[in-house]
Amino acid sequence: MPLIQVKDLYKIYQMGNVEVRALDGVSVDIESNEYISIMGPSGSGKSTLMNLIGCLDTPTSGDFFMDGVNVATMTDDELAHIRNKQIGFVFQTFNLLPKSTSLRNVELPLIYNGSIKASERKGMAISALERVGLGDRTHHKPNELSGGQRQRVAVARALVNDPAIILADEPTGNLDSKTGEEIMALFDDLHQQGNTIILVTHEEHIAAHANRVVRLLDGKISEDVLTHRAK
């Protein structure tokens, strides 16, 4: 049974009398421990798909199964639980809390975890920040960080709770190629450890880290191929 199963998914926005088909019948199965790049032109529906897989959004129609369970049947608390424990989300627009320090931002998923003691949280958050090279920026607020640093705080926040699935929407978009490669090395590492990784990117060399590339065009899958990395 696939870890994630998307069946004929539609997300349609009705803007007055214009219909925007952000997702126009997408079906895809993702196995556990896959490493997938989602590519496609701007506006093709990549973020929309990520939000749905991340259990943040609800489709207009179609089914979406997580570990065999239809997400549409889940209660609010079950969804919150999945978002907290199963999924680490790196948003395209970061979505950090502007008034909180990097440390507090990274601690956030741990706070809602419920089974992690307050005393352990800080240490876990610091080591996550160290992994993205921001061990010296723990007490900076988002507006005291560069764009790339904010992006790395967002990555650290996605990793800190050790989720099974990492959803990263252009995680290297604001980074120079060296820092970008460092972050990608982190993802490669997590993949090695058995995690499932789905990332959105516009860059072929980033996409090349994955072993499968899914291309979207106008809300439809135009190509779904295994890369040379896949064995």
């Binding site: 608390d77 948003f91 926040r157």
Partner: peptide
């Protein structure tokens, strides 16, 4: 509102 969105995305439940 955005803060609530972030917290929910990070797994905050309704009651929290």
């Amino acid at each position: 509102t955005r803060e609530i969105g972030v917290r929910k995305a990070m797994g905050a439940t309704r009651s929290q």
